[in-house]
Amino acid sequence: MEKRVRFKGYLLPICLVMPQIVITAVFFFYPAGQAIWQSLFIPDPFGFSAQFVGLGNFEFLLSDPFYRASFITTAIFSILVTAVSMGVALFLAVLADRLIKGSGTYRTLLIWPYAVAPAVAGVLWLFMFNTRVGVVTWYLGVLGYDWNHVLNPGEAMGLVVLASSWGRISYNFLFFLAGLQAIPRSVIEAAAIDGAHFWTRFRTIVFPLLSPTTFFLLVVNVVYAFFETFGVVHTITAGGPQQATTILVYKVYSDGFVGQDLGSSAAQSVILLIIVSVLTVIQFRYIERRVHY
């Protein structure tokens, strides 16, 4: 029998949820509404005049093959960032979970990168992979590999994925570790007594029990890859070479804040918003079914 607690009256519950509603309204609904409104106009940079163009901005964007190509670039980038940051985090969390001594230090060190802003992370990785003075570039050179992300599209993509995933690994690690520690020892011990090896235990017990955490992280990381990675791209490649790392959110930034084309930038934000909404709905409808709470 489920226990329900009900507040008497409406005042207190409304007061309690108000802060969250106000924050969402001010920082999400208002700007999102503005973006949708602006996407219907071509304004001049100074805001003296704006011409109503209806869906003209969307037509302008979608008729551009280079813009359409950046959907594929974004898909590749987001899948890689999500896979790398979650995969590595899970691996490290499983290791940390088994640690007996020094786990505090280990955890603290792993969480550190999360405190580094994306743009700063971009600069750090750029230094290591700098084609002229980068440490990693130098060692790769010793091994006979000529690293040049300035001209090689694949290497450029690899570098921005690495830099974007790095800080994210910490965040994912925290959640995975908490999830792992919430799994009852008794279940695992029972399986061990039955003769299940580590890998079998992980596959049949730990991973399914971890699925709520994994699902949550999947949603959050996809949103991160779509919206918050422009700082890394901006500092490392500025979208190049050619258009190899021009992801959608970077184009929103560069068209709006470098090119002063606010109409197109707003239309691109709306397109991004739609994509992420659709992805989230899909995730909740189809993937969540496989999640065991």
């Binding site: 090689n152 979208g239 190049g240 050619q242 560069s254 068209d255 470098v258 090119g259 002063q260 084309d261």
Partner: peptide, 18 residues
């Protein structure tokens, strides 16, 4: 939009250099 046009020129020149 000259800043963006320069960006386009950069992209296309990179295609020539590579």
């Amino acid at each position: 939009s000259f800043d963006q046009i320069r960006g386009i020129v950069d992209e296309e020149l990179e295609a020539v250099w590579s």
